[in-house]
Structure formats: structure tokens, C-alpha cells
Design a protein around this nucleic acid. Structure first.
Lengths: 155, 155
DNA sequence: TAGGATCGACAACGTGGTTGTCCAAACCGT
DNA sequence: ACGGTTTGGACAACCACGTTGTCGATCCTA
């Protein structure tokens, strides 16, 4: 006499709602700590740039988008002061995209906040259920990394 | 001696990857069954329209987007042959958006596919772990429904 | 050194959002 | 029954993010 299983269409909704909950809480907290203008897509892009910097093309490859799209995102990040372009001394074609101190700060903060958010889940669910959730998801998702072309992918 | 917990930033990635996996598999299957042009956002919009139809404004409210945005999405859905606009006999201002037989077919198919996808997860994880994942997520996400303005939200 | 690959810029376009404006129709309080 | 307010939908302008295609400059390699 177990309850009937929920309909299949609820699973993607729950996963998305969980994702969105975390991202919304992240950006709420980021906004409260001096980063009100950064959007979810910017966080992924800065992650792709990394602390050592990267070329536009490399950023595009890491995000799974064209280098043109990566270039535009870098432009906006630069306008917000999170990123700067410097000439690559080893390749006159290439410009290195580097995080500014502000960009590094936002990345550091985001890591802290994600840690706190996971800790919240542990409080609500218990450490075991959170680990179980993570391990279940690791089982069902393909090994390959996921492109982060969310807006284009979805719409 | 439990393993160290994964970093907090992995949780949103896993949730998103799970969501994306399901949606990608859905649309792969949909494409193989005569619906190659429908995009994720269209499925959510058709869900919002529902089998009984709805006005543009109502669709916008259900999706959590402006009525203008809802109108544009309905336009594209209409161009693809999934919905039609008919005059609302009870309100001369309003036009009722209704699913065409093709639209209804895609909705019925999507429900079947989501059911099969969940069954796949049950095969991989066991019924109990899938139920546990669903119940964990229900615990941590806010009760309120989630807007489906994904592209605009993310970018 | 010549040919091919790669880097980044520019342009044009599609799609999904937003605001603001507008008019016609519906609703509601006097 | 009328007049003010709310609502439905269309139109326009704009922004963000993605796509292709093109191009000159630079690098690598046969």
C-alpha cells in the first residue's frame, strides 16, 4: 500500500525548481554583498574564465557556445567591471580575459554561499539524504560535461 | 570515515544536469515521433494553455511572464501549428488560445515519454531512491510555483 | 615559404524577455 | 444608465543571449 508514484512530468519540474532555488538564493546573497548586477549566466562564464584567465575562444569551448557568443558575454562582464582583456604576450592574435579583483571577489563569495546553501539542505534533509541525492543524480546523468548555453538551449 | 562531502557548487550543477538530461531525452523522443520543431519553452507554454485553452493574459500569468511575451510565444506556436486563436464568445476583447490536434498529440506524447523516463531512473536507481529524491526536493523548494521565464531569468 | 588552422572582430539574424503606449471592451459604483 | 477604472491584446522599441557567415591577422607546420 505505498502511495502511488508521482507522475513522470513532476521529476523535471522538481529538479529545475531545486536548481532555481539555489541560484536565486545565491544571487540574493550576492546582491546583498555588493554584487547586485551579476546574472546567473555571468557566474558560469566567470567560472569558465577561471582564476588564471583564458582566451575568448577557450571560454567559448568551455561553455559550449560559439566564440562570438562568448565574446559578447565577456563584453558585458567587462562593462560590469568583473573582467578585463589584456594582450597575450605569447600570441599576438589572442587576448587574455582575466578576472578583476571584483570578479575574483564574486567568485570567492559564490563558493562560500554555495557551501552555506548545501549546509542548509543538510539541516533540512540530513547529511545522508543530501549525499544520496547527489549520488543518484551522478548515476543518471551522462558523464559528459554540460554546455551552459541555457537561454539558447531552452528557447 | 565517510568520504568528504562534495563542494557546494556541485549541487546546482547536478540538479541542472538532471533537468537537462530529462528535457533533452524528451525532445529527442518527441522529434523521433513527428515533433522535431518543438522547443522546451514551447512545452511549458502548451502546458500553461492546457487542454481547455486559455487567454493570452492567462497564459502569461501562468508562466510568470508578461502578456506580451506570452503573445509572442503563442505566435510561434501558432506558426508551428500547435495552437490556434479563436474568438472568445463571452468576451469580445479576448481571444481564446486552443491547442490544435497536433498540439494535443505532443502533450499526450510528452506525458508518456516523461513516464518512461522516470521508469528508466527507477531501473537505474530503484523505486525507493527515486521517491526519496523527489521527496527531498519537495522539502527544500519553496511551496510557491515557479515561473518558467527561463531564458530571461538566467541571462 | 606556402598553405592551412586559429583568434577575435563585425554584421545580420532568430528567439525570448522587458517597458511603454494605445484602444476597445468589460466591469462596477454611484 | 452612465462614467471611471480595470482588463485584454496589439504594436513598437529595446536588451540579452544565442546562431552563421565573413574577414584580416597571426601562428603553425609540412
Amino acid at each position: 500500500m505505498p502511495d502511488v508514484d508521482p507522475p513522470g512530468w513532476e521529476l523535471p519540474l522538481l529538479l529545475f525548481a531545486g536548481f532555481r532555488t539555489l541560484i536565486d538564493q545565491l544571487h540574493e546573497s550576492l546582491a546583498a554583498h555588493g554584487h547586485p548586477d551579476v546574472r546567473p549566466v555571468h557566474g558560469f562564464a566567470m567560472q569558465a574564465i577561471g582564476v588564471h584567465g583564458a582566451s575568448i575562444s577557450e571560454v567559448g569551448r568551455r561553455l559550449g557556445v560559439s566564440k562570438q557568443a562568448a565574446g559578447k558575454t565577456v563584453d558585458r562582464l567587462a562593462a560590469l567591471g568583473y573582467v578585463e582583456r589584456v594582450d597575450d604576450p605569447r600570441d599576438a592574435r589572442s587576448k587574455l580575459v582575466r578576472l578583476t579583483p571584483r570578479g575574483l571577489d564574486s567568485l570567492r563569495l559564490a563558493a562560500e554561499i554555495f557551501e552555506a546553501l548545501r549546509a542548509d539542505w543538510v539541516v533540512q534533509l540530513g547529511a545522508e539524504r543530501v549525499r544520496s541525492l547527489e549520488s543518484s543524480l551522478r548515476t543518471v546523468i551522462p558523464a559528459a560535461g554540460y554546455p551552459v548555453d541555457v537561454p539558447g538551449w531552452f528557447g
